[in-house]
Simulated scan of single mutants.
Amino acid sequence: MISRLQPKLGRLLISEPFLMDPNFKRSVILITEHQEEGTVGFILNHSSTIKLKDIVPELNEADFPVYLGGPVETDTIHFIHRCPELMMDGQEVGKGIFWGGNFETLKVLINNNSIKGEDIKFFIGYSGWSAIQLEMEMKDNTWIASDEFHPDVVFSNHEENLWREVIVNLGPKYAHVSKFPQDPNLN
């Protein structure tokens, strides 16, 4: 596969179909930071069995799913949202999608049932690359960078189909890729 775009804040990184790294197999990653020094993002379609209430005791009613954002610093919690009018902060990463914000404010909003599950997504850990590392992976066609997606994709809870949906959305040139088996030996 040949990527049309380079990584950029707010774009998606979509793994090539035969990437066997278990951390990134059939991954869709939202890029939340991209600078000369490196890139940070969160895997949108790797769910876990953890709920927010399991890791934040003050939120004992918070039944929000927690996703595996990536293999870096898996002892940290991160979130993206699309409710800046409630959070009053966070960094806009594109198309009305915000990364982070004041966690104390977030806890109050969650306990007051002011935030809906379709407007926020939680992650443990993140995905990160040095500038040279991601550049080399892009040259090796490990990733497709795309900004051809609706913001709803980011907050989708249909993680099993998200990779396929995003690939198909790239158009006819890529749609056939969505049908490739996960294991090329099964071809």
Rank of each mutant, 00 (worst) to 15 (best):
E61R: 09
A131K: 11
G128P: 14
T74N: 10
E165F: 03
V168N: 04
I115A: 00
L134E: 11
E85T: 04
E148H: 08
K139M: 11
Q133I: 04
G125A: 05
F180V: 00
I132Y: 12
K179W: 14
S27L: 10
P172D: 10
L109T: 09
D147Q: 12
P65S: 00
N169E: 12
S156Q: 04
P57H: 05
D54K: 01
I55F: 03
V28Q: 07
E61W: 00
P17R: 00
E104V: 08
E33M: 13
F64E: 00
E58G: 13
I110C: 03
F180P: 00
K8E: 15
I80P: 01
N111V: 05
K25H: 15
N60L: 07
V28E: 14
Q35G: 04
V56H: 00
Q133V: 02
P172S: 13
C83V: 02
I55E: 03
V40T: 13
L19Y: 02
I120H: 04
W99E: 05
G101I: 01
E104C: 02
G101D: 01
L59H: 06
N187P: 00
I144S: 11
V28L: 08
T74R: 06
G96Y: 08
V154P: 07
L68Q: 10
L170S: 04
C83Q: 06
M20W: 12
L106R: 00
Q182V: 06
G69C: 09
